[in-house]
């Protein structure tokens, strides 16, 4: 493996994560303050780098570090199988399953971050995320498998290649919508932001300050970026498109999906995770299964 794609991947991920944070800040600000919103993420980074760590009584520091750091690690590892242009950083015959396995590690990361400080609100937030995970994970898996079924392969590159004629979003729209919903829930973003909700004083990240908080926040944005980027090879035809090279199309589509997710995060009201569980198991799972049945019939 050469170093080139690795650097390209890291830089793209970092730039998109900062861009997502800036767009989010702009959505929250008045039009007059859009200029300062553009630099808000960088100012926040500088602030957190100079801020002191907060210590709680009897924290489990080993598990806290493990939890905080495994959030960005899971996001970065999930993204290595996604092709930016022609090839991913690490080609895998079971890329779809790998992506799924790495984003499930987020459950562990968030729960650990909530549990370890030995403090009430983070604990509540951590358990909220696990409950939310139980709600979104099954429809999410079915959506991923539907795309893999349509392509007849678990390799993300081949799933993208199978959409040369017609994008999967055209004939599996239900799976695509379910994927976007579960992507929001996975990054506990917007309507699914209850694990870090204001009514529990910030949930999982209450006790995180300084560099710890920076790593956690960066991980959350990286997760949002990777979840958006995965929608491109899975449903939006990968790098396919006229005129521009495939890496440019991948980037354009990723930015579009990311923009929609960040925007939805600011515009859609919060959903309580027990209600979401009900909706998810009673509506999303049957819908995903029906979509899979349709795709299965078409494939056969």
């Amino acid at each position: 493996m050469t170093v080139g794609p690795l650097i390209g991947y890291a830089v793209t991920l970092a730039v998109l994560a900062v861009a997502a944070a800036a767009f989010d800040a702009a959505l929250a600000a008045r039009p007059a303050a859009w200029g300062s919103a553009a630099t808000a993420p960088l100012r926040e980074v500088a602030r957190l780098l100079t801020q002191q760590r907060r210590r709680t009584v009897l924290p489990d520091l080993v598990l806290l570090r493990a939890g905080v750091w495994s959030l960005p690690a899971a996001a970065v590892l999930a993204g290595v199988v996604l092709p930016l242009g022609e090839r991913p950083v690490a080609e895998s015959a079971v890329g779809v399953v790998w992506f799924n396995a790495m984003e499930v590690c987020v459950w562990g990361a968030v729960w650990l971050t909530g549990w370890a400080p030995n403090s009430v609100f983070p604990l509540v937030g951590g358990y909220r995320f696990v409950a939310q995970g139980l709600a979104y994970e099954l429809p999410h898996m079915f959506a991923l498998i539907t795309a893999a079924l349509g392509a007849g392969s678990l390799s993300v590159t081949e799933v993208a290649a199978a959409q040369r004629e017609v994008w999967f979003v055209v004939w599996m729209p239900v799976a695509f919508v379910i994927y976007l919903v579960s992507a929001l829930a996975m990054a506990f973003w917007g309507p699914f932001g209850q694990p870090v909700g204001g009514e529990v004083a910030g949930g999982v990240r209450v006790e995180l300050a300084g560099p710890d908080r920076l790593v956690f926040q960066a991980g959350r944005y990286a997760l949002l970026v990777v979840a958006s980027a995965a929608a491109v090879p899975l449903f939006l035809g990968g790098g396919a498109g006229p005129l521009l090279p495939s890496w440019a199309w991948t980037l354009v589509k990723t930015v579009a999906v990311l923009g929609v997710l960040v925007w939805a995060g600011r515009r859609v009201p919060a959903v309580r995770m027990d209600r979401f569980t009900q909706a998810s198991w009673l509506v999303l799972i049957p819908a995903a299964l029906l979509q899979m049945l349709v795709v299965g019939l078409v494939v056969i």
Partner: peptide, 8 residues
Amino acid sequence: VMEMMIMA
């Protein structure tokens, strides 16, 4: 991973 979290 899922199993351990459900255990939690």
